[in-house]
Amino acid sequence: MTPADSTRRVILTATCFAEAEAMLALAEGLAAEAGAMLQGVLVEDADSVALAVAGAARIVDPAGRPVAGLDPARMGAAYARDAARFERMLAEAATRTALTWGFRRARGRLAGALTGLAAPGDLLVLPAGLLRSPLREIVLAAGADPDLAPLAAAAAARIRRPLRQLAAPTVAGAPWTGLGPGSVLFSHVEAHNLAALLGATRCIHVLRA
């Protein structure tokens, strides 16, 4: 069975457009490689919504300037703008590589939202940590779905970056310490461990649902 046979969708999940943009090439390549549908999901993160109403919270824009007058309406408008840009970007990418595609918005926590969306055979592409950097390495976790190996190898070849193996991950353990924002970790994780995984890492994840 080839990855194309086993992968139904590649779900690119982000909480803002900047994150989606940083991961698009990876997700597009995976979808093309696997012959899967490219699905975009913008999650309106509960923490972000909470931030908009927390009086003590402060926001700094990407250029390093403080943002004043934070409220849920402005945050909602910002999500709407990011969703439109995300969808447009996805459409252009899918047209370029002749992929079928879809897009949707979700609310809640990233891990929770994905648990509701993902189906067996889907490949989840999602960020962890604050920062997104140019991709520097592809990491294949030990114990990951065997189907992920060729996809990881193809991704590494595509971005001309190294592919390395990682010891079996344990959420409580320390194998994540070598991963950074430029790392892409191909692994398998149970839904109930997803939030812990995202909280413990600062890289891009490619997960077999």
Binding site: T15, C16, A46, L51, A57, R58, V67, M75, A195
Partner: peptide, 27 residues
Amino acid sequence: LAIVRTPMGFGVAPRKGEEILPPDEYE
């Protein structure tokens, strides 16, 4: 504290566990 990435930029707020401290609790 928690640093959260949002469509408007990076947010800094008190945290409670892995989540943002609700405003009423902060008060």
